[in-house]
């Protein structure tokens, strides 16, 4: 398959992803697909940090929460239109990521995992804190209106939010692909694979790592903002450690070292719990746990690397 060929297929896939659900999917299904895109962006942020940057962050849920609350507060208290909250959410989470990344990355390895884990555990409590209550709505959270389609387009809110989210998602995925292929991306992978050699080559480890941490936070934060718009509601308890763990599961299962893996991971974390929840509310988490361990043992590269291995076999057979 040539490059232009595969690019054509990709465009075809995106168009199909936009059109087919509009025609066939119910409101709830559209909502789920919207969540898939929001989570895919969040997992993508995690992939950048962990898969490409080689840093284990367990607190991506915290950045998701920052993005979601930024969007919600802007809409609720400042009457900012929903679409205009995204760039602000991106900047805010990016800055928060940089600020946290600076000290955290000096530690690296397990220590970073520990700090970010602690961060994820502490987030709901901070969101409930009474000093911020006027902004965050405390335990109650903030309820948002679902946006209508603009320009008199003949779409209901679910359809519109899906299309809007998908468009933002596509733009950011293209951006991430370019980022990974840019000098920064190449330097990052050099750092991940050969830290000593990279340092010897003059790559400034800490600057690049901090930068990726910031970018990772940014992508996750935009995902959070989109998620908040789609759900129409933010509250502290929806951003517990469980969210961070879910994003972690999505990253591992999709494949941390790939861009497309974020999509597979997001599909997994949105749809598998739905199937499993019929048995018991607690089952999805347990299944996540079991699948997580199985992937660590048998497919550490996630679905993305399983698929690309299949593709290679397929091509070799032809």
């Amino acid at each position: 398959m040539t490059q232009s060929n595969s690019r054509f297929l990709l465009i075809l896939f995106v168009v199909a992803a936009a059109v087919v659900p509009l025609v066939f999917a119910s409101g709830y299904q559209l909502f789920q697909l919207t969540l898939v895109v929001a989570y895919a962006l969040s997992v993508l942020g995690k992939n950048l940090v962990t898969g490409y940057g080689g840093q284990v962050s367990l607190g991506q849920g915290a950045f998701y929460a920052v993005g979601a609350y930024t969007a919600a507060i802007l809409m609720e208290h400042f009457n900012v239109p929903y679409w205009a909250t995204l760039p602000v959410a991106a900047v805010v989470t990016g800055m928060v990521g940089l600020a946290l990344g600076l000290p955290a990355l000096r530690l690296g390895g397990l220590y970073l995992a520990l700090v970010t884990f602690a961060m994820a555990v502490a987030v709901p409590q901070l969101l409930k804190y009474k000093l911020f209550e006027n902004w965050t709505g405390g335990v109650q959270g903030i309820v948002l209106n679902k946006p209508d389609a603009p320009f008199g387009l003949p779409l209901d809110p679910d359809q519109w939010v899906y299309l809007f989210t998908l468009s933002v998602g596509v733009v950011l995925f293209v951006a991430a692909t370019n980022l990974v292929r840019s000098r920064i991306g190449l330097a990052l992978m050099a750092i991940r694979d050969q830290p000593l050699a990279a340092e010897a080559m003059g790559v400034e480890l800490s600057r690049y790592k901090t930068l990726t941490f910031g970018f990772g936070a940014l992508f996750t934060g935009v995902g959070g903002a989109l998620g908040a718009i789609a759900v129409g509601f933010v509250s502290p308890d929806s951003f517990s450690i469980a969210l961070s763990l879910t994003l972690f599961v999505g990253m591992v299962i999709g494949g941390a070292s790939s861009i497309s893996g974020a999509v597979y991971g997001a599909l997994f974390i949105v749809f598998v719990p739905n199937l499993a929840e019929e048995i018991s509310k607690a089952i999805p988490g347990a299944i996540f746990g079991v699948i997580l361990i199985l992937f660590m043992f048998f497919a550490p590269g996630g679905i993305a690397s399983l698929l690309s291995a299949q593709m290679r076999r397929f091509r070799a057979a032809r």
Binding site: L245, P284, G285, A286
Partner: peptide
């Protein structure tokens, strides 16, 4: 034991998997 020499991500993943399993099985 089998993950002893695997990268940090693998052992962290296994521990988080255990965390999820214990928490949810207990809830169940």
């Amino acid at each position: 034991e089998p993950l002893a020499r695997a990268p940090v991500l693998a052992s962290v993943g296994a521990f988080l998997g255990l965390l999820l399993i214990f928490n949810n099985i207990a809830g169940w």
